[in-house]
Write a protein that binds this DNA or RNA. Structure first.
Ligand SMILES: [Mn+2]
Ligand SMILES: [Mn+2]
Ligand SMILES: [Zn+2]
Ligand SMILES: [Zn+2]
Lengths: 147, 147
DNA sequence: CTGGCAATTTAGACAAAGTCCAGATTGCTC
DNA sequence: GAGCAATCTGGACTTTGTCTAAATTGCCAG
């Protein structure tokens, strides 16, 4: 069993169990949000999650979506990715990995782990301790070269 | 002469010349903003720049501060650092380097170049091309260990 | 059961950061 | 000095997210 489950076919009971594993009380709203998220590896922002939950016919308020995403991130079932000053992405892949960010399309994608290596990590400034190391490779749409 | 000038004693004429070097027409407002910025190596957000300009007794509008910071970044005299979803930092050090970001204090600081090395850069996704590579080391205030 | 109670959810007000616009200013050039 | 393009400006507006106070829900003791 992998740590980052990506089954499309996760029923409410399965989702609830998974939430419990992360010490999250599985309310109706949390299960609905988790179902949308755990449908596969994704990088979604709060708005998109709200849209998908609503599209799925479930009624969940904006405040609850924000509360829940924050809770999920705290509990470690999701990872926040802060790469764009306008929105936080929630990453269903909670293992250590880095990202490409397409500044034209706004699309975030994983960098194949092992395809990058950060060496010689420096000491954190006096009085602080490292929390996370994040590599972001910003990419642009390739422009057509002149013929 | 280094590329990133950090003189505290840069007069209006000097600043204006520097703006011209970057192909920026030195208006009164742009010079005032540049004086605040080029006073030393700093990582400031728009609000802080606006505050400093106003504190210096110069009248510059919010819209002009935003326009000008964007222009300076486009022209390459400043670098935008996107590490916090709430604000963009403007870095007066426009050379390639990476950052520590203290998530408790909100302080951004440079990583000594050469103290970090990113290896085995992966290929950009099909149809895209690398724009920049950014390493962000998030740090926390060190908690006091139990006695 | 059933009232009590804490946790959760909700609508909508609010806030922070940034963008946009239409009119005013500025700085050339002729 | 008039004409003109670039720039600047106040303030309305947008986006993303937070906050609050009231309603709902889920549990549990009695
Ligand atoms: Mn969004
Ligand atoms: Mn913002
Ligand atoms: Zn990811
Ligand atoms: Zn820097």
């Amino acid at each position: 069993m992998s740590h980052s489950v990506t089954l499309t076919t996760l029923d409410d009971a399965g989702v609830a169990k998974r939430l419990c594993d992360y010490d999250i009380l599985p309310t109706r709203q949390r299960v609905q949000i988790a179902r949308v998220l755990l449908a596969g590896d994704q990088h979604l922002c709060a708005d998109q999650v709200l849209g998908k939950v609503k599209a799925a016919g479930s009624g969940v308020s904006k405040a609850t979506v924000y509360n829940t995403l924050g809770l999920f991130a705290d509990k470690g079932i999701l990872r926040e990715v802060k790469v764009d000053p306008n929105r936080v992405f929630y990453d269903t892949n909670n293992s250590e990995h880095h990202h490409f960010y397409n500044i034209d399309s706004g699309e975030l994608s994983d960098i194949d782990p092992g395809r990058i290596l950060v060496d010689q990590l420096p000491e954190a400034p006096e009085g602080s301790v490292i929390d996370s190391v994040e590599v972001i490779i910003r990419v642009r749409q390739q422009s057509i070269p002149d013929v």
